[in-house]
Design a protein around this nucleic acid. Structure first.
Length: 833
DNA sequence: AAGCCTTAGTTTTTT
DNA sequence: ACTAAGGCTT
């Protein structure tokens, strides 16, 4: 569990979460079996209760929190703003339900989105109640609980209970096969895209028969519905599920089997949902099925969320679920948590003013009364380009580390850089490597998604589940065994014709002469190996077996013989994979875990600055937060605006809100005038979100360096004394260029900004001379001067050779090259011949 | 089966 | 501009 954040206390300067009560039994009596288990916890919790006064665990709560904990009967929506003690309320509420004897641990259903959140909740309940929480079998993610339900009733939806869970990669490969089998051009209709469509439908809870006609037509000349149905059939044959099915199958099963649903109704006395604003339609349907009760019986559902932190609309989350909670659950009580324990008044003020620009919200205002005159305002900085941005952030970090500003030395662990898009990270990494500053990147490619780990897992899967064709196809020729396309196709056809797994097909076919002798020998060896491994499965310790599989299959040797730079790292990852199996009892148990828990631990020992996207920062907090890249087009992101319209913009704004509210003490926002996007230098405009920050809580940093045109020439006072605090930035070369571009076709990405009137102050002309790089950049991307080329000119390009200019858009030329065909290039890269 | 060349994509991410 | 992946050639 340690990625460095788990030990950061949720409350700053508050008393820690209540400790194990003195009268709690010292020894654990946790039940060993599953249901009806968990009496150990209940007993401890009951013992912890003090009949004469309010129990200890309630004492540290504010009135609203306490209300949310004690309102146990009937539907309850807790609107918990950032840093208001959400997790504390949830965990205390659970402890309270247990302590008052209202339910056994096994009668609580508590759902989270991520494994991390589930883990954290378990730990914290353990702290409250004392001891581990083995007795809460129904605390987990939507998906892990879905699997649990589904394994019990798999046969009701046409699966066997040992079904496999496919991840995205498997799904895409499977769909690709289906597309090809239909004779559809898989270049024109990419499997990946269709996988995303299916995912979208499943998020909405739609079967093939239910998808909108338009959607069905949109793919592969109207074959969308057919393909989706074919995909579901194929999954059934494979005895497999995708992630969406882990929710949809239980929904189907409950609808078709009211008696089963009733069992669960009786079982779950209290239901809790975390991060309710992130639920999608399918999750919502699932929840409603489980939460519904006959008239007169209270629906004990408690959903906790924050509409202002809903940032996953693009993957199917429906903020509406939280906005209409009261309609869905009549008689619901709504409690708002607005007292913030995390941030300074300036940070809260800035965030609150920004988010107030959103229309579709329930409306909360965070406040704190711990006001300190030394609290720093949110600082907005300008930089010339992203390189300077990274340099300046690096300097600020070193300053804090040394303790220059306030005499306190700040740990790198307390600082984070939160970016909108991951490509922004690189510049910071480069800079920090140069500076020798420790950093850690959160998110990004994950351990279990690495090629070598997935290969190894495919071997294990096939040993446990010989019918796993996807695993078979993945590794049958890895390492190379001379089993090429032809052989695989033969196997595939045979298997499909007889409806048997490919491994079985292979066993059949090596008896015949349909396969060339060489391939037959190779296949024979593979089959022998798997037979033996399967036999060892029951007798050999799983770690030993896993090592043996990787050795005997030649997989480790393959990487040992590989001379590429990555090979050693891959071998190291394989060792790590084996090591991580130690925590499990069997190979099967391990596989199940991995399919549901895709995250791996990070080392938290080192003191390091965290770099991550705004999305992965949700739920975390840091003393100092740096928010670079506040420019139109990047943040708010152009695509969010194009595809999401106004609601897209509002989601971006929520993202900005999430970013600011991660900060406890210091928040530094940056924007640059020039950024390279897709390899081209673009002039950028400051983000509209900057204009939405309140003057009283924000200051604009004086220009720290090279980037001249800002803050010099007698501007000592706050930029906010002016009508437009950022006016000066609009006099920079970047801004002028943006203006010039406005009347030009090159504005395509950037010129669509509206409703943002600014007064320009003619300052740049007489201002300090810009750096040399300025001249270069202007030369490359300015459009204020007419192009030195005209349509029809014959030009030479170093890569594409000779050609004629077909059209000119600012500094971008469209050229018909004699050999390379039509290309768009910058005018700086060609010369007249 | 390895290596080269062309082509497409380049916001955010969980399970 | 860069990268990664897929297709094609040798």
């Amino acid at each position: 569990m340690s990625n460095g954040f788990d030990d950061i206390p949720f409350f700053d300067e508050e008393e820690p979460a209540p400790r194990k009560p003195a009268q709690a039994p010292a020894t654990s009596t946790a039940a060993s079996g599953p249901a009806p288990g968990g009496l150990g916890i209940a007993a401890r919790a009951m013992a912890a209760r003090d009949q004469t006064r309010a129990p200890d665990y309630l004492s540290g709560l504010n009135p609203e929190q306490r209300d949310a904990v004690e309102t146990v009967d009937g539907p309850l929506l807790v609107l918990a703003g950032a840093g208001t003690g959400k997790t504390r309320v949830l965990t205390t509420r659970i402890a309270h339900i247990l302590a008052t004897g209202r339910a056994f641990p096994s009668q609580l259903l508590a759902v989270t989105f991520t494994n991390k959140a589930a883990r954290e909740m378990k730990e914290r309940i353990g702290l409250l109640v004392g001891g581990a929480v083995e007795g809460m079998p129904w605390l987990g993610t939507f998906h892990s609980i879905g699997v649990k339900i589904l394994r019990r009733h798999a046969e009701l939806v046409g699966l066997r209970s040992d079904f496999t869970i496919l991840d995205t990669d498997d799904v895409v490969r499977l769909i690709k096969q289906l597309i090809q089998a239909e004779g559809i051009d898989d270049k024109r209709w990419p499997a990946k895209q269709f996988a995303q469509m299916i995912d979208g439908w499943k998020n909405k809870g739609l079967d093939p028969s239910q998808i909108p006609e338009g959607d069905a037509r949109a793919f592969a000349n109207g074959k969308g519905r057919e393909l989706y149905a074919a995909y579901q059939n194929r999954l059934k044959t494979l005895n497999a599920c995708d992630f969406g099915d882990l929710l949809l199958h239980p929904i189907r099963m409950f609808r078709a089997n009211p008696d089963v649903l009733k069992e669960y109704h009786q079982k779950f006395k209290y239901i809790l949902v975390d991060e309710y604003q992130d639920t999608n339609t399918a999750q919502y349907m699932w929840l409603r099925l489980l939460a519904q009760r006959p008239p007169g019986v209270p629906q004990n559902v408690c959903c906790v969320g924050d509409d202002d932190q809903s940032i996953y609309g693009w993957r199917g989350a429906e903020v509406d679920n939280i906005l209409r909670f009261e309609k869905d659950f009549p008689g619901a009580k709504v409690i708002k948590l607005e007292r913030n324990y995390r941030s300074t008044e300036h940070i809260l003020g800035a965030a609150g003013h920004l988010i107030a620009h959103n229309e579709g919200r329930l409306g909360k205002t965070l406040f704190t009364d711990r006001v300190n005159p030394d609290d720093e305002k949110v600082v907005v900085h300008a930089a010339w380009d992203s390189e300077e941005e990274a340099r300046a952030v690096g300097e600020e970090i070193e300053r804090l580390q040394r303790g220059d500003s306030d005499g306190k030395k700040h740990a790198l662990n307390d600082m984070a850089i939160l970016v909108r898009a991951s490509f922004q990270m690189r510049e910071f990494e480069d800079r920090f490597v140069t500076l020798g500053l420790n950093y850690r990147v959160i998110g990004g490619p994950r351990f279990y998604e690495r090629l070598e780990v997935r290969d190894a897992m495919a071997y294990f899967r096939l040993v446990c589940q010989p019918a796993d064709d996807l695993a078979f196809e993945r590794i049958v020729n890895t390492p190379k065994r001379g089993l090429g396309d032809t052989t695989i196709r033969t196997l595939h056809d045979y298997a499909r014709a007889r409806d048997v797994p490919m491994l079985a097909a292979a066993a059949d076919l090596i008896e015949t002469d349909e396969i060339k002798p060489k391939a037959r020998k190779a296949l024979f060896d593979v089959i022998q190996h798997f037979r033996r491994w399967s036999e060892l499965l029951e007798t050999t310790p799983h770690i030993e077996l896993a090592e043996q599989i990787l050795e005997e299959s030649g997989y480790t040797d393959m990487w040992k013989n590989d001379k590429s730079a990555e090979a050693p790292g891959r071998l190291e990852n394989l060792k790590e994979l084996i090591r991580s199996m130690e925590a499990f009892e069997s190979l099967r148990g391990f596989l199940e875990h991995v399919s549901l828990v895709m995250d791996a631990e990070q080392n938290a020992d080192m003191d390091a600055v965290s770099i991550m996207t705004l999305h992965s920062a949700k739920g975390l907090e840091f003393d100092t937060v740096f928010l670079p890249g506040w420019e139109e087009g990047l943040f708010p992101h152009q695509r969010a605006l194009d595809e999401g319209g106004r609601s897209g913009l509002e989601e971006e704004r929520r993202l900005a809100y999430v970013g600011i509210t991660r900060a406890k003490r210091r928040c530094h926002i940056w924007f640059v005038s020039n950024r390279r996007i897709h390899g081209l230098w673009q002039s950028t405009m400051p983000s509209r979100f900057l204009d939405e920050l309140p003057v009283t809580h924000v200051e604009v940093a004086e220009s720290e360096q090279s980037y001249g045109g800002y803050g010099r020439g007698g501007y000592g006072q706050s930029r906010f004394d002016k009508a437009d605090p950022f006016a000066n930035n609009y006099s920079t070369p970047g801004w002028k260029r943006a203006q010039a571009n406005k009347s030009d076709a090159t504005r395509d990405n950037w010129g669509t900004r509206s409703g943002h009137a600014v007064e320009r102050i003619g300052y740049g002309e007489s201002g300090p001379k810009a750096k040399t790089i300025d001249g270069e950049l202007v030369a490359k991307s300015t459009t204020s001067e007419p192009s030195k080329f005209t349509v029809g000119d014959r030009v030479f390009h170093i890569k594409f050779g000779n050609g004629n200019i077909a059209s000119i858009e600012g500094n971008k030329l469209t050229i018909n090259f004699d050999r390379a065909g039509e290309k768009r290039v910058l005018d700086g890269f060609v010369e007249r011949v």
